[in-house]
Design a protein around this nucleic acid. Structure first.
Lengths: 337, 337
DNA sequence: CCATACAATGCAAACGTTTGCAAGAGTGCC
DNA sequence: GGCACTCTTGCAAACGTTTGCATTGTATGG
């Protein structure tokens, strides 16, 4: 009952010719007569011949497959990155196989092993939060599989990378706040042990300095989720000299701020401006609509994939590692002046 | 410079034994002496031997790979489904390769072809909005590749499916609204040409009927996005006999309603109750927090994958198609009494 | 001492392709 | 008629595995 897919051998047998002739006919090889080609192609089409990608890969030692290792598909940012990766892969004729680490080191390692066994041509990776040792990535590279890190890069390893320009994104957003008249901008950021956090914090501080404003400890909080924002925002608002703007390191947090500010009866943006980061769907349904820094996740994924494909094609010269930076841009909506 | 992965043949040559012995040693075959096994395993570990999944698949005619066809990875619902699929696949030792259709028929067909070429063991699919003909899915089935549809099922084809219990989800949510004292519940739904839309609409109507309330045309609108909600909600609120509750078919729309209601100065939930559908991250950051029907996307994906694996193992008997229904549940928050 | 049994290993084919090389048929030229 | 050429096709090996069967060597039993 098990129906096998039809193979080149089957076609050859049916038409009483050799497999080589069939193969060459399908590939439109000049050595084969037009007549034979016609017969073969007709038969192949009629019987819905599909080349066996496995056999082909084995033969040519080229799987046309890219592995992706990322923390969590469900996060808006990563799913948009993945979407960009997928689209660009398809354009280049590559398949994509994915492994989510769920932020654990162990699953990340398992994923890398699986990709090695699948003989992928290259790997795109964003490292898990709990990862501190990088042997599994090094093993990929040692096996001559190009690795391109995206967003959460791996500092210990010399390899291509493409990251979001957090620093500039935050800096220009904060400058925008300042130029619109804000004088006391609060900053809600992530814990400092991620490289990304520091970049953002520096962007904030530099924007203040560039514009002659003081960096005040009491306006800087570690706060990167909604509930924390609900807890910390009132504290800041009740300062004798309350902030007139908030910059939050993600949109959930910014929405938390927004809800508190509204509840206190303060006018947005006239009395308090708010700016988020990521620009996910939240920003498009809040009231008022949230101004946010767009990270261009899709573009980042697409860009990483393009870079990887260039590597595979050997367009890029050998050792020179390239590090691309995806520019963010501020999407101004209604929470800023 | 190109470093090949080490193969069984390499090990055989290095140890001056035959490839078969190496293969059997690695598989812990009883025919092989413990001594030989030890030597082989040691050598393999030292040189980081990784079995070539391609060759294995070709040999055994089993790729241990599942194909997934879905409309858009970026949507919260689909990315959570995908996450469930991925996790469950990993448990079962399957790889996952994904194709997004971007809601277009053409890409869906291309995806199906690619999966056929990759000789996947089975396929999980959710059909694109623009798809009206199903030959590409039929071709998979004709090639003896089991297909399990999830969420957006394909009515024309007899096959396993797992869907969200839209009808019951909407019905019980609306009943909840009624039992909490609401008498005029408005319904914001999708255009009727999707099967899903009708189920939801029926759930709404039946809930009203069961509780002796009239189904009123003027309370039923086609409206499934944020901006539409901003346009239509004021209309309903200015009716002489305005609704005291809104049920929306997704969370974006519900948030739109919420924002309008708040702006009008009506109390939520005392004067107007609101209930959404999907229970995505929006529901957890709105003010007040949105009551919503959780679709359990992750569980749906995991369940579909489990069903597919059972099929592949032959646990399920041949022709009987199974259709699983994932129960929704109402997450009551602050927009309902 | 021979037959038998058993343990350990090797041979070779197969999975579905591609491809270098050889081979056959036909044609034109001297 | 023989030679060199072109045009078309086929043979066989290779990619990395697994596995049925054959082979070898050794020990056991009569």
């Amino acid at each position: 009952m098990k129906k096998r897919q039809i193979t080149i051998k089957d076609i050859a047998k049916a038409l009483c010719i050799s497999p080589s002739t069939v193969s060459r006919s399908l590939a439109d090889h000049p050595d084969i007569s037009q007549e034979t080609k016609n017969i073969v192609n007709a038969y192949a089409r009629e019987h819905k011949y599909k080349p066996n990608a496995l056999a082909l890969s084995l033969r040519t030692n080229n799987t046309k497959t890219i592995g992706v290792i990322l923390p969590q598909i469900v996060h808006y940012f990563f799913s948009s990155v993945l979407s960009g990766i997928e689209d660009e892969a398809e354009k280049g004729g590559y398949r994509v196989i994915i492994c989510q680490s769920n932020e654990t080191y162990e699953k990340e390692v398992k994923g890398a092993q699986a990709l090695l066994e699948a003989r992928v041509c290259g790997v795109l990776a964003s490292v898990a939060k709990t990862t501190t040792t990088y042997d599994h990535f090094q093993e990929l590279i040692d096996s001559d599989i190009p690795v391109v890190f995206f967003d959460r890069i791996c500092t210990g390893i010399l390899t291509d990378r493409v990251v979001v320009d957090d620093y500039a994104g935050v800096c220009s957003a904060v400058e925008y706040l300042i130029h619109s008249g804000c004088r006391r901008v609060a900053f809600f950021g992530s814990p400092a042990h991620l490289a990304i956090s520091n970049n953002r914090r520096m962007g904030y501080e530099d924007a203040l300095r560039k514009n002659g404003l003081p960096v005040e400890k009491e306006l800087i909080k570690i706060c990167d989720n909604y509930t924390e924002a609900l807890r910390l925002t009132p504290e800041l608002l009740s300062l004798p000299n309350r902030p007139d703007a908030f910059f939050a390191v993600n949109d959930e947090t910014a929405i938390g701020v927004l809800n508190v500010v509204k509840a206190k009866g303060l006018k947005i943006p006239d009395e308090v401006s708010i700016c988020g980061f990521t620009n996910n769907s939240l920003a498009e349904v809040s009231d008022p609509l949230l101004t946010s820094v767009d990270q261009h996740g899709y573009e980042l994924g697409a860009s990483a994939m393009r870079l990887l494909i260039e590597r595979l094609k050997g367009v890029r010269d050998g050792d020179r590692i390239v590090s691309k930076i995806i520019k963010t841009n501020l999407v101004v909506r209604q929470t800023t002046r």
